Amino acid sequence: MDGQSIKRRAGRPTPEVAEQKRNNLILVALNEFARTGFHAASLRDIAEKAQVSSRTLYNHFPDKLALFEACLEHSGAQIRPELPDLKGDLHTQLITYATEMQRQLFSTQSTQMARLIYRESSEFDELRKIARLQFERHQVSPVARLLEAEGVDPAESHPLAKQFVVMALGEWQRRLLFGGELMTDEEMAGHAKLVTNIFLNGITSRIS
């Protein structure tokens, strides 16, 4: 029996088991943050609900902020459509991308996390910084890459991509802040098409 097997028998989990525990911690923490808010969430409660020891939690995440950042990273990765799956010309790809972003952001968990950030980031700037980084990484950067693939100068692709994403998420943000029914699939697709047409052609294309 080799040394690695002895260590595992002594209680050290395999890399696969450790990764499963980490992922489960993130999912449990997402629900807890969304339910109670960042400040009120208890790492002890999260560990208990994830059925791990506090020591295991701290082995993965040194503090609450690190765990929250991992939660946003997980959520952001779920929101971002996979670029290889986007088909068609740039117009079609942007419509698909904007529609999928809206669909994911209207999920219960995403909405709860967004409200948490709006509510608590004004008092805790670190939350705002983390959310901004996730927004840039998971919503803006993929669009910038789409634009660059069509020949847009990399020096201009990022600000253009940011403008597109802001436009695409405008209706979601309005309903989040002021209330309103969830958008239907038809409404999301229509909004994505409108935003994409204005983004690519300008508002003059809408004026007869």
Rank of each mutant, 00 (worst) to 15 (best):
L30Q: 15
T111M: 11
F106I: 01
L177H: 02
T56G: 04
A192Q: 12
H158Y: 13
T184G: 06
L169Q: 05
M188Q: 00
F124Q: 04
E69H: 07
A189Q: 10
R35D: 12
N59Y: 13
L65F: 10
Y97E: 11
G151F: 11
L105V: 01
Q173E: 12
L67R: 03
L177E: 05
L27K: 15
L90K: 07
Y58E: 05
S205M: 11
L116W: 01
A98D: 04
M188R: 02
S121D: 06
Y58C: 02
D185C: 05
H74P: 08
S107K: 10
L176I: 03
L146T: 01
L83R: 14
T108H: 14
G88K: 05
R132S: 11
V152L: 14
S157E: 03
N201V: 05
T96F: 09
G170R: 11
S5Y: 01
I26L: 09
E136P: 07
L83H: 05
I26H: 07
E136W: 01
L127P: 05
L86D: 02
P62W: 13
A98P: 02
T196L: 04
F68N: 05
S110V: 02
R22M: 02
E126Q: 07
L200F: 03
F61W: 04
V28K: 13
I79D: 08
V28G: 11
A168L: 09
D45M: 13
K162E: 03
G3W: 11
E187H: 01
A41N: 12
E186R: 08
F61M: 01
Q104A: 11
T92A: 13
S121R: 07
Y58M: 12
I117C: 00
N23S: 14
L176C: 11
H158V: 15
E136D: 11
I79Q: 07
T96Y: 01
I117H: 00
A18K: 14
R80H: 09
H39E: 15
N201K: 08
R103N: 00
D153Y: 06
E123V: 09
M167L: 15
A98M: 06
T14H: 14
K87W: 14
N201R: 10
L116P: 03
R119C: 06
I203C: 02
A18P: 08
G202Q: 02
T36F: 14
R8P: 13
G3Y: 11
D185T: 13
F164G: 02
Q102A: 08
E187Y: 09
R175A: 07
S75Y: 06
F38G: 00
G76E: 03
I95Q: 02
H138G: 07
R137T: 15
H138Q: 10
G3T: 13
L83C: 08
G179K: 00
R145Y: 08
F68L: 09
V17F: 11
E16W: 13
G37T: 05
V166T: 12
F164D: 05
L94T: 07
L43M: 12
M183W: 06
R8D: 14
T184D: 00
G179L: 02
G170N: 10
L146R: 10
F199S: 04
M188W: 08
L182W: 00
L116H: 04
F106A: 00
R137V: 10
